[in-house]
């Protein structure tokens, strides 16, 4: 049974709330993920990403709010959602005391995958783990565990992937391969919600959502998210940038200073005041300044500091 009304959206949730004790962990989160879209879910540690994803696949019951996943109601039809969603947990959650082959075989049995043995064999071959299929999963290195988990949650050809930091600890080559594969899947109509802390991954998503302290602060394409914040940015290149950062921090128009590998990024809402401050500081020094496009990372760091007063005490 599919509901025609939400046919466009793989995920369509409104006003999700979740408390743990007194802590308001997810606060009025609404998300819409179109079919065939890669949707990046960003936010600082403890901002409620994992909690939100868990509510979508029926692992946690929202205190209030409603919505659908693949057209199924997240409150009442979680059994149906579980059959067509692939959820990869943030923490490795396969069985350490089963071998790689046994883990995959178990998953395949639970989902009732036709042609089980062949599928499992092929998946192990694709992972490049054929020689180690009989190794215990607990003995794999962190990155390999991650890759195995990913393969396992895609075993049943889900229509929607919920991936919670799938590439944490995965090497750059494997990460790139993985994202190439994700984009291929998306092109074939599979929807993906992926949480990540990597900016390069964020920029490969079709859409982004940024959550902090349980509140959704921005949503849209990378360009929209950047534009929404109305930040102008300058990059300053030269030596002794740390001293410069300390000076600039208190100048009018400067809302944020961050040192990246290539230079000091200064951002602010008031473009004119920012420019005056930057020019004044570099005037008598051997420094070079250039106006740059505000990057995603600048925006995220800006949003993170802007919500710091919402901070309710982490445990």
């Amino acid at each position: 049974m599919t509901t025609a009304a939400n046919a466009d959206f793989a995920i369509d949730v409104q006003g999700l709330h979740k408390h743990f004790g007194q802590k308001h962990v997810v606060n009025n989160v609404s998300l819409q993920v179109r079919r065939g879209e890669i949707f990046g879910f960003l936010g600082p540690n403890g901002s409620g990403k994992t909690t939100t994803i868990r509510m979508m696949c029926g692992l946690l019951k929202p205190d209030s709010g409603s919505g659908t996943c693949l057209g199924y109601d997240i409150l009442r039809q979680s059994a149906a959602i579980k059959c067509s969603v692939g959820y990869m947990t943030q923490r490795f959650s396969f069985w350490d005391d089963l071998t790689i082959a046994e883990n995959l075989d178990f998953v395949a049995r639970i989902y009732g995958i036709p042609n089980r043995r062949e599928t499992v064999r092929q998946t192990i071959a694709d992972l490049g783990l054929t020689g180690r299929a009989r190794q215990l999963a607990g003995e794999l290195s962190g990155g390999w565990k991650q890759r195995m988990a990913l393969a396992a949650c895609m075993l049943h050809n889900p229509k929607l992937l919920l991936l919670d930091e799938p590439t944490a600890g995965v090497d750059p080559k494997a990460r790139r391969d993985f994202w190439d594969e994700l984009q291929g899947l998306a092109a074939s109509g599979i929807s993906v919600l992926v949480s990540t802390h990597y900016m390069d991954e964020a920029s490969r998503c079709h859409k982004l959502a940024y959550i902090a302290y349980g509140k959704l602060l921005a949503q849209g394409t990378a360009a929209e998210v950047i534009a929404q914040q109305n930040l102008s940015s300058w990059a300053i290149y030269g030596d002794r940038l740390i001293e410069l950062q300390n000076i600039l921090r208190n100048q009018p128009g400067v809302d944020q200073t961050v040192i990246f590998g290539d230079g000091l990024h200064v951002s602010g809402l008031d473009a004119a005041a920012l420019e005056r401050s930057v020019q004044a500081v570099i005037a008598d020094k051997a420094l070079r300044a250039a106006k740059i496009d505000t990057g995603l990372e600048d925006v995220f760091i800006y949003m993170m500091s802007g919500t710091a007063d919402n901070f309710r005490g982490e445990t």
């Binding site: 029926g58 579980k82 947990t89 923490r91 959650s93 998953v107 989902y111």
Partner: peptide
Amino acid sequence: ERGTMENLLAMPAT
């Protein structure tokens, strides 16, 4: 405790 319950609950097993 090992976190595998999350995986098990996310699968269709009742």
